[in-house]
Amino acid sequence: MIRLFKRKKIDLPDFWKEYEKSFEEKIPNDVNDVRFVVFDTETTGFDYFQDRILCIGALILVNWRIDVKKCFEIYIHQESYRKETAKIHGILKHDKADRLTELKALELWLAYIGNAVLVAHHAHFDVTMINRALARNSLPPMKNKVLDTGILYKKTLLRSNLIQKKERYSLDDLATKFDISKKDRHTALGDSYITSIAFIKILYKLKEKRNWTMQDLSARRKWWK
């Protein structure tokens, strides 16, 4: 097994190696210094095997600042396409927007994120979709730490049997709760922005309870599962 893994590593493209190398730098423990990449994907559907990513939108959040010119928004050319979901994301099969191949898109994506801590709403879905795409292109899964605003939000609620916590809080629920405009819902970058503001507000809410460090937020490596 180990040997197999090693041999495979040699075949990996340069951009993957560069991505991997970025993890040599440790993630700072002070939440203010951490580079978060807040992202969202638009896909053809919710099936991990059948469906494909159409668009990835992301932004970088450092020290509570978002630099507008450093946003990430790419569209991917996909053969597989489903008409039913088009009314949600509004991406047509032959839209004139510049489309990239999946491999090129992944290359850009990995260069963009580096060792950043990823943040998404119901992150498991988006992370799995990207990891599937990586696998299709013979690449290993992403190595980043991941935080899920859906789970973090539940931690801000008081623990009491009187309050029925919902199983899942949608991004719409959060936007309403935190008074964020829902104008750009269902575009990848628009959803990323809503997620990032919700994320900031959640962090402050949690901070009121106690001072959080990066270690607290990602107490178990894959707790978002």
């Binding site: 939108g57 932004l59 978002i66 507008v68 010119k69 450093k70 946003c71 990430f72 928004e73 790419i74 569209y75 927007a97 510049d98 990239l100 850009l108 260069a111 963009y112 104008k183 750009d184 575009t187 970058l189 628009g190 922005y193």
Partner: peptide
């Protein structure tokens, strides 16, 4: 490098 279409956020700004 990273933006291939209109930037949704800058438009909102």
């Amino acid at each position: 490098r990273f933006l291939y279409m209109k930037n949704t956020i800058s438009q909102r700004v």
